[in-house]
């Protein structure tokens, strides 16, 4: 795979203002949904993003799509500063950056036919095309995602979840984008349909040389589809590594806990797998812990962790594909987690 970075994000921050009541007075505070994260996506690569609800994974996706105004940080998209481009250049970027959402039926306009839904990006961005040219391209992408051409005049409510998600995918790929953000794209689907859509995304990525940012809370699905995985917790990067290496050999205590908590669909392995249980819940992003954000729940927390936030360090692991980054003062002691 070429190591050609198409997207490079540096210190991305997305904060939302909120009002907090403290005693008699209410104060303006910030919900730090995404708080200084850096990563990149290579051309043709699938970057998986995992984390629990509230960790900022969707916010990160929206910021990358330029749908949310970031509070800070930089993003370089194909050599250009994504957060400052305007006008024609922004339009060009919008064509190359597409999105697939979680709820397949809700993300389609109920009053438009399948043909209209899929054609809309094309008629918006390439108004010069004739009706016939649009039609033929619509038929082409419908075939590509496994929709029959006689479905073109039907409405979204006539489709099951899996088929509706295929329509969403057809709409996302018709402009031949370079990067698609898949925000929980298979989470609402039944297992047997989920497998069909995962295979479709993999196949499209091969055929079209697409890059994907695949956001999901489901570690098994993310591992299956991703080349590299980014683990988020409370708006911060915990670990980034090659997908297999991350699962086989997690270096951050949180990654290790997260992997151990995945229920294994195999009774005997389930019994032998030791689930590392965490105390308590995710802290509020309005008032995140000082020091390391994971320090309130970390099984191997030390005094230093409560005072000093760790930086994301690049570490070398022997015989491992790719680069690994970890944000932990004591990653060398990760073996003690769950002991």
């Amino acid at each position: 795979m070429s190591e050609n970075k198409i997207l490079e994000v540096n210190g991305l921050k997305v904060w939302f203002p909120t009002i907090v009541n403290e005693g008699l007075w209410s104060k303006k505070r910030w919900v730090k949904a995404v708080d200084g994260i850096s990563f990149h996506v290579n051309e043709g690569e699938v970057l998986g993003v995992v984390g629990e609800s509230g960790c900022g994974k969707s916010t990160m996706g929206m910021a990358v799509l330029n749908l949310l105004k970031p509070t800070g940080g930089k993003a370089v998209w194909m050599g250009k500063d994504l957060f400052s481009i305007k006008g024609r250049e922004m339009q060009k970027a919008r064509r190359d950056l597409q999105v697939i959402f979680q709820d397949p039926v809700a993300s389609l306009d109920p009053r438009m036919t399948v043909g209209q839904i899929i054609a809309e990006p094309l008629t918006t961005h390439q108004p010069e095309l004739t009706k016939d040219e649009v039609q033929s391209q619509v038929h082409e992408v419908m075939a590509k995602v496994g929709l029959l051409s006689d479905m073109i005049n039907r409405y979204p409510h006539e489709f099951s979840g899996g088929q509706a998600q295929r329509i969403g995918i057809a709409r996302a790929i018709i402009l031949k984008p370079k990067l698609i953000v898949c925000d929980e794209a298979v989470s609402a689907l039944d297992v047997s349909i989920q497998a069909q859509i995962i295979n479709l995304l993999k196949q499209l990525r091969e055929e079209m040389g697409l890059s994907l940012i695949f956001i999901s809370h489901n570690m098994s699905v993310v591992h299956h589809i991703s080349d590299r995985i980014l683990v988020l917790y409370l708006g911060k990067v915990m670990e980034i590594a090659d997908a297999n290496a991350l699962i086989a050999n997690p270096q951050h205590p949180y990654t290790k806990v997260l992997i151990s908590a995945v229920p294994i669909a195999d009774p005997r392995k389930f019994q032998s797998n030791k689930i590392i249980e965490l105390e308590g819940d995710i802290p509020s992003p309005v008032n995140p812990p000082k020091g390391c954000v994971f320090s309130t729940r970390c099984p191997i927390v030390k005094d230093k962790c409560r005072k000093e936030p760790p930086t994301v360090e690049t570490i070398a692991s022997e015989g491992e594909a790719g680069v690994r980054q970890v944000a932990c003062h004591f990653y060398q002691r990760v073996n003690e987690v769950g002991q």
Partner: peptide
Amino acid sequence: GLLESTPRLNADG
């Protein structure tokens, strides 16, 4: 079919 189509966390990939 249900068992086969469930993605699994195989560390060896």
